[in-house]
């Protein structure tokens, strides 16, 4: 059932191309804005870059998280799914995974642009960088899918989602920025292990909360 639901989200995106195009366009526009607004030295740019980078991805993720649930509302397909013999926890995981996939695909396009336009050196340890990015994406998607499910029936949900999401993911983002900065600085893992552990904890906690409470939050 999980595969059916994730495939459904991907097929809808393949047909409509609404989520990825808006994510990439918006992300590229902010990246260009950063590139042409700041003219610092390469050293100071490397200090700012992780923070700027995660700000872009947080804004971009809101587009995907909001759209994935608002599309369910358009012809009230969400009621159809809720009334079908589908466990709501599985529905949450499907939204969580499809949000994660959209974020990863958008990052695959935006990250090279970010490094190129901000003239950043590639980190020596790419595997660590990829691991941190994937985990933070899981964290954003877990918290965002849960909140998106909660606010989807509210009239001003497009405003409410970022208002609730940004404070909630602040610990995750601080850890992401610290970890990314350490990787770009070639620091040994031991020095930023705590931030990495914080990211892992955030992912576990929000994945479990979403899995357990989505049944209640999805009903009107």
């Amino acid at each position: 059932m999980l595969a059916v639901l994730v495939r459904k989200d991907l097929l809808i995106e393949f047909r409509s191309r609404e989520i990825l195009i808006s994510m990439i366009t918006f992300g590229a526009a902010i990246t260009l804005l950063y590139a042409f607004s700041f003219r610092p030295s390469p050293e100071s740019m490397q200090t700012f870059a992780p923070g700027l980078m995660w700000m872009v991805f947080l804004f971009v993720s809101v587009l995907a998280l909001h759209r994935s649930h608002s599309l369910e509302k358009e012809f009230d397909a969400f009621s159809m799914i809720l009334s079908a013999p589908v466990e709501r926890s599985v529905l949450f995981i499907s939204k969580y995974l499809s949000g994660f996939i959209f974020l990863v695909v958008a990052q695959m396009v935006l990250l090279p642009l970010f490094f190129l336009f901000l003239q950043l050196p590639l980190p020596a340890n790419l595997a660590q960088m990829v691991a941190v990015f994937l985990l933070v994406d899981l964290g954003i998607s877990a918290a965002g899918s849960l909140l998106s499910g909660i606010v989807m029936r509210v009239r001003v949900n497009e405003m409410l989602l970022p208002l609730m999401l940004f404070p909630m993911v602040t610990p995750l983002l601080i850890s992401a920025v610290k970890s990314t900065a350490s990787i770009m600085d070639n620091q040994p893992f031991n020095q930023w292990k705590l931030w990495f552990q914080l990211i892992v904890s955030f992912v576990i906690v929000f994945s479990l909360i979403g899995y357990l409470v989505y049944d209640y939050v999805s009903e009107e």
Binding site: M1, D76, A77, M80, S83
Partner: peptide
């Protein structure tokens, strides 16, 4: 349940919608 709203996905075709819903029922 066939609600007042159609309960389908607008970007998909009629056949795709029916096929998807059938899969949700196993």
């Amino acid at each position: 349940y066939l609600g007042h709203e159609p309960g389908f996905y607008p970007p998909l075709s009629a056949a795709e919608n029916l096929h998807l819903i059938a899969k949700l029922y196993g």
